[in-house]
Amino acid sequence: MAEALLTGSLRRQMAARLAACGCDTPDLDARLLLAFALGCPPAEMLAQADTPVAAAAEAAAWALVARRCAGEPVARIQGAKEFWSLDFRLSPETLVPRPDTETVVEEALARCPQRDAPLRILDLGTGTGAILAALLVERPAATGVGIDRSEGAARTARDNLARLGVGARSAVLVGDWGTGVRGGFDLVVSNPPYIAAGHMAGLPVEVGRHDPALALVAGADGLCAYRAIAADLPRLLAPGGAAVLELGAGQEPDVAALLSASGLRLAGPARRDLGGIARALCAFRP
Rank of each mutant, 00 (worst) to 15 (best):
R163K: 15
Q114E: 15
G167F: 02
G208I: 06
A141I: 12
M1K: 10
A215H: 01
R271G: 11
A47Q: 10
R12K: 04
A108Y: 08
G248M: 07
A20Y: 05
C282T: 11
L119G: 07
A49Q: 10
F36P: 00
A57E: 15
A43P: 00
S85C: 11
A154P: 03
R76A: 10
A153P: 01
L237I: 05
G183Y: 01
G152L: 06
A60V: 01
G146N: 00
P239T: 11
I121Y: 01
V207R: 01
L236H: 13
P192T: 11
L28H: 09
R98G: 07
L161Y: 04
T51A: 13
G8S: 02
E82N: 12
P52S: 03
A162M: 14
G241T: 06
I77F: 09
A238G: 11
P42S: 00
L86T: 09
R209L: 15
E44W: 14
V53R: 02
I131P: 02
A43N: 02
A134K: 03
G125V: 02
P73W: 08
A256E: 14
E106W: 06
S170V: 02
P192V: 14
G250Q: 08
L237C: 04
L237A: 07
E138Y: 06
A54L: 08
W62N: 01
R272C: 13
A63R: 15
R98L: 06
A80L: 11
G198M: 10
Q251R: 05
G22P: 03
A243T: 00
L33C: 00
L203M: 15
P92F: 05
G178T: 14
A261I: 05
L95G: 01
V189D: 10
L216S: 10
T179F: 04
A278Q: 13
I77V: 12
G39K: 09
A230W: 07
L28G: 03
F284D: 11
S150G: 06
L223G: 03
L18C: 02
L135M: 05
A168P: 05
Y194T: 08
M1V: 11
V205E: 15
G222I: 11
G275R: 15
S260M: 09
